[in-house]
């Protein structure tokens, strides 16, 4: 598969006088069409990484390539046309005074003509199921609905990559689940690469590959199955949790990671 994001030896420190680095030679590659999760606890450097990936910070050492362009002060505007970003706080990323105005904001910046803009805005809103709400103002929307609008705003730009920067953290469990499903569908229908920066394990489980950050360094990279097997301090998804609980009780369960579905099949055997 062709790489869409390449991060090489990325190092960043906020205070150049000290030795403490927010990121220390971080490298990874994200393939086109992949769902890639970046996880780590608070202070692991994942928010710094998010800001570097979106061009809000400039790499001090190392490089970032997105869609074959190197991220520089000059190229970042070009790159931003290829990525859509959804941030954490639903309120603070709602710029427009109505749903459709907000979705149009990025397109307005491209100086797009009205006809094309309207088409894109409507399409994007339909994709996230918010078309009926297009004339609403944000104070009448729930947190989950606002995040849907934010996703629509990203989709309207027809990006290659959708970056979810802790986008579901402030939502309740149900909205979170529903949004994850939506992202799943969109990934296919809009031909997206998804990069989710998160500490939510359901989101990790949904990913194709995961990179674990700790103290600014990559400590592990692999499929969720491998990560949950190797990283013992991570809270695993429900299926694996049950497998471990059963193993502890002396049940004859397989010794390796099991998803929910696998546990179910094993019980049913």
């Amino acid at each position: 598969m062709a790489p869409i994001i390449e991060v090489n030896n990325l190092t960043y420190r906020y205070d150049l006088r000290t030795e403490t680095k927010a990121l220390l030679s971080v490298s990874f590659t994200v393939h086109r069409g992949e769902w890639f999760a970046i996880i780590g606890n608070n202070g692991s450097g994942k928010s710094t990484l998010a800001q570097l990936l979106t061009g809000l910070l400039e790499p001090q050492q190392g490089s970032i390539f997105i869609a074959d362009m190197e991220m520089t002060e000059k190229s970042k505007w070009e790159i931003r046309n290829r990525i859509g970003v959804v941030f954490q706080n639903p309120d603070n990323q709602f710029i427009g005074s109505t749903v459709q105005d907000d979705v149009a904001f990025g397109l307005e910046n491209l100086n797009m003509d009205y006809k094309e803009m309207k088409k894109r805005v409507y399409e994007a809103l339909k994709m996230v199921g918010m078309f009926e709400y297009r004339l609403y103002d944000p104070s009448h929307l729930s947190g989950g609905q606002k995040q849907r609008v934010a996703i629509a705003g990203a989709l309207a730009m027809k990006p290659d990559v959708l970056i979810l920067d802790e986008a579901f953290v402030m939502l309740d469990p149900r909205s979170r689940r529903e949004l994850l499903e939506t992202i799943h569908e969109l990934k296919v229908s809009a031909d997206l690469t998804v990069v989710s920066i998160t500490h939510d394990m359901t989101e990790v489980e949904a990913a194709d590959r995961v990179v674990v950050l700790d103290n600014g360094q990559v400590t592990n990279i692999g499929k969720p199955r491998e990560i949950f097997t190797q990283e013992k301090e991570l809270t695993p998804p429900l299926g694996e949790k049950l497998r471990r609980a059963l193993a502890k009780r002396g049940a004859n369960v397989p010794q390796s990671y099991m998803s929910r579905e696998e546990v179910m099949c094993w019980l049913w055997k």
Binding site: Q51, R80, G153
Partner: peptide, 8 residues
Amino acid sequence: NVMEVKGY
């Protein structure tokens, strides 16, 4: 940040 990332 949001505005900048959206190309403003």
